[in-house]
Write a protein that binds this DNA or RNA. Structure first.
Lengths: 252, 252
DNA sequence: CTCCTGCCTGCCGTTACGTGAGAGTCAACT
DNA sequence: AGTTGACTCTCACGTAACGGCAGGCAGGAG
């Protein structure tokens, strides 16, 4: 069977230009042309294209793909291993960034000031030599920084009042429950943990159970977040932490 | 305080060329120049650069960063939320790819033939209309495909003999244990599960406990892998599955 | 005065294509 | 047969975010 560029493009989910490009660089030249100069692809070409797209999706540069496919002595398994490593690294990096961004969102929600160090935390590869005490102070909290942070919360006034009200209402109820001696894994407290999650989801960002337990851990691990809750009521940070975990487990 | 390009580049971990570029496109122009035309950056410039690098690391294009930073009405929280979504999507995609590549590695290790559909599995966004039954058959297993698959395992002959020997030895021992009635979570069997993991790590790819339990699940979920083990001994797939999980838990 | 290092501006190169421009081709419909 | 509309061809420049080099000043040390 023979196919035109357009047909190949459609079935493979790429553009015609992409096929032209692959022809130009010799990565995938059609096996023939019509008398009018139209490219004709056959099944073997499609096979090769499939391979090309496979490696491309895995993040190999086209030049390398050419080498991999054309060199019969090349070791595909070794490439897979290498690519696996690369992917794993990228995955880890992305995970860190997601965590960092969640941290930033939560902090801005609570109006907690991030240190410049933390704002740089998202960069995994901070050269320690470049970040000596002297250099760090340069990134300190100037007016410009504080202002940009103040802007970080930009709901309408009414929104903020509602958020505050809902939040305080929630706070009163959980403090009351804690004072009454209700265990953190009792249904009522777990309901409030669930409400905590939904409050975040509604006003700030979609918060899964996994993310919420991450936040709960952070409430204990980071003293500034601990202080925020301890300030409301002594022991609340740990209490909420336990309730969130219990709730997440029971809903799983 | 004023800094030269070189100093800024050093402390911020970027190249001088990058700063030139940011100046060119108006993303970050130094607040002044010396009489000789040298760029002079002050603390406010550094603040801005920090912000730029922050957003850059989060994957924003430079043009968008310019807009975000320069527009005082822009909502940083909204940007963070949006970026969080983007990151989450990319993360999920990467995770799928890692899984797919592990699947491919495991398959090539066992000399199991992947269907062309599975090889395309790594592409998350297959348009169903593009992949009708007719189109799918086009990607069928031709000679070229099978040959490329045969090449997928390229150890030296001696290596393969050793791998095979080790593998068969391991197989004999676990079959013997199973036949003796040893429970899958007994120490000896778990030791063999551990050996299974180290065998993979030594010959194929670094295999964590998490990955190994993933493989174990696959041994039950995918009938071709199940068949591979059931072929060795009836019940071995489930037995190994349990042993791997037990071992992973006990080592955690 | 010379040397070395740092800085300047231009400008071409890179990756994997996107996006036309201008012209020829194919199949169908009138 | 003519025309239309969809498809194809080959240039060839544009994109993002810089890398890297050339050729030429600037500034401080010896």
């Amino acid at each position: 069977m023979a196919y035109t560029v357009g047909q190949v493009a459609k079935v493979a989910g790429v553009t015609v230009r992409t096929l032209h490009h692959y022809d130009e660089i010799g990565l995938l030249s059609p096996s023939g042309r019509t008398s009018a100069g139209y490219r004709r692809y056959d099944d073997a070409d499609l096979q090769r294209l499939q391979l090309v797209l496979y490696y491309r999706e895995l993040g190999f540069p086209l030049e390398e793909i050419t080498a991999i496919i054309d060199d019969p002595a090349a070791d595909p398994a070794a490439h897979l291993r290498r690519q696996h490593e690369l992917l794993t690294v990228r995955l880890k990096r992305l995970q860190e960034m997601v965590t960092a961004i969640e941290f930033a969102m939560e902090a801005s929600k609570m109006n907690i000031q991030l240190t410049p160090e933390e704002r740089f935390e998202v960069f995994g590869d901070v050269d320690p030599e470049q970040h000596e005490a002297e250099a760090e102070r340069r990134w300190g909290d100037t007016d410009a920084y504080r202002e940009s942070n103040r802007r970080a919360s930009r709901y309408g006034k009414d929104d903020w009042l509602r958020i505050k009200a809902e939040n305080e209402d929630w706070g009163r109820r959980i403090v009351a429950l804690m004072a009454s001696g209700a265990p953190a894994d009792s249904p009522e407290v777990m309901d409030l943990a669930e409400e905590h999650r939904q409050l975040i989801s509604r006003w700030f960002y979609e918060c899964s159970y996994e993310m919420q337990t991450g936040l709960a851990d952070m409430y204990l691990a980071d003293e500034r977040f601990t202080a925020y809750y301890e300030n409301i009521a002594a022991g609340l940070a740990a209490y909420l932490h336990e309730a969130i975990h219990a709730n997440a487990i029971s809903r799983a």
